[in-house]
């Protein structure tokens, strides 16, 4: 995962510039994400779907993989690429919790705090993670930009409480004392 970049401010050129005053393009610069290899990948994805609209979720994953999050700029860019409206794309992005609407740390840590894990001390694990990463609170990114910790509902590993997910990677049976070792490997 690359850290978020290339995005400043919230002004961008219109997705489907219609007419009138909307045509200006010298507003603050936004580096498009759907270029080069990412665009090639999108084209490959599009081949698998009957309509462009149907490819919206994987297209958003592409953006999130490339940028770490899905900015409003990127939503408009995806809308243009898939011939949708920016508002529609925003509706989809904000409906699902797994698309990040804000920049997150390089390592995105999800901790299961559903009942069985809770019973096995998940809360202490969360506290340890927040302390050791420097995040301070759930959802925040650590000052070094490396970590963001959030709570999630069941990760499906109740027999190995408390499971956590670091980006795509699954770690089972995490207890507060293991936290610093796990994080050290990432630092």
């Amino acid at each position: 995962m690359t850290p978020p970049g290339g995005e400043t401010g919230s002004v961008h050129s219109p997705a489907h510039a219609p007419h009138g005053a909307a045509g200006h393009s010298n507003e603050e610069s936004y580096q498009p994400v759907l270029l080069g290899g990412v665009r090639d990948e999108l084209n490959r994805i599009l081949e698998r779907y009957p309509t462009k609209m149907a490819a919206l979720l994987p297209a958003l994953w592409l953006v999130q993989d490339a940028r770490g999050w899905v900015s409003e700029h990127s939503m408009a860019e995806v809308a243009q690429a898939l011939e949708l409206t920016p508002a529609y794309v925003k509706g989809v992005v904000t409906f699902y919790t797994m698309y990040h609407q804000h920049p997150v740390g390089r390592y995105f840590v999800q901790v299961c705090t559903t009942s069985p894990c809770m019973a096995c001390g998940a809360e202490d694990t969360v506290a340890a993670l927040l302390r050791h990463t420097g995040c301070g609170e759930l959802g925040s990114t650590s000052p070094d930009g490396k970590f963001t910790v959030i709570e999630v509902e069941c990760l499906g590993a109740c027999g190995f409480a408390t499971p956590i997910m670091i980006n795509e990677e699954f770690v089972e049976s995490v207890t507060p004392d293991k936290v610093s070792t796990i994080l050290a490997q990432l630092r």
Binding site: S10, V11, P14, A15, T85
Partner: peptide, 10 residues
């Protein structure tokens, strides 16, 4: 639109 600006949303 995506960013609240009607102009950007056409």
């Amino acid at each position: 639109g995506a960013d609240g600006n009607p102009e950007h949303a056409g």
